[in-house]
Amino acid sequence: MSTLPVGLSRDLSAKRVMRATVGGQDLVVWRATNGEISAWDNRCPHRGMALSHGFVRGNTLACLYHGWHYNGAGTCTYIPAHPDLDPPATIRTNRFSVVEQDGVIWVRTDGEAQAPDLPGGLEPLRVFIVAASADQVQCGAAQVPYEGQMADAGAVLHFGAVSVMLLLSPLGDGRTQVTTLASAGLTVAQRSALSRWCEATRRHVEAQQEEAA
């Protein structure tokens, strides 16, 4: 597995928790009060509860089930049922490497995450999921017009002055999460129109799958 996007920085503010998936790996991604971001196996080492149901206390993530706290290093710092206990250092979450670059949260589950160098002049638009493979989304997107205009095929789709780039993360269940970047400085109306292009792309690609099935 390479380094893949799991979401946008703007969609995960401080003290917030979200669930994400890359290549079949269920993740909890959370941001501490100090802004530090973590991506872990979505499983509390105590009882296996999904940590994505948990909540942030200061710079720790607390499991919703029994309230065990874990700091950014994944180490258990507090067990409410034993408030005077200093938890053993061996109680830790399974951490993955995570970086933020270009407004995108990138995770790698089998090594050090390294975000690719993206073309300049782009900024995050939105994230959506398509019930199709990454290849199918990439091919299908080039067939959907924006404002009556077809794109030149390539890693970046150019619709005249408006450019779009799709970052594709296979979820491991046949679906693909699409992180969409678009030209920086677009108006709200343009972003809204491009957001509808994303929906049209989803419909187009999913209809292709249904026809093929």
């Binding site: 979401g7 969609d11 979200m18 939105r126 999921i129």
Partner: peptide
């Protein structure tokens, strides 16, 4: 699930 719906997640919150 709400995984692919960041705007929904933040509005629910």
């Amino acid at each position: 699930e709400h995984d692919g719906f960041p705007a929904i997640r933040n509005w629910l919150y």
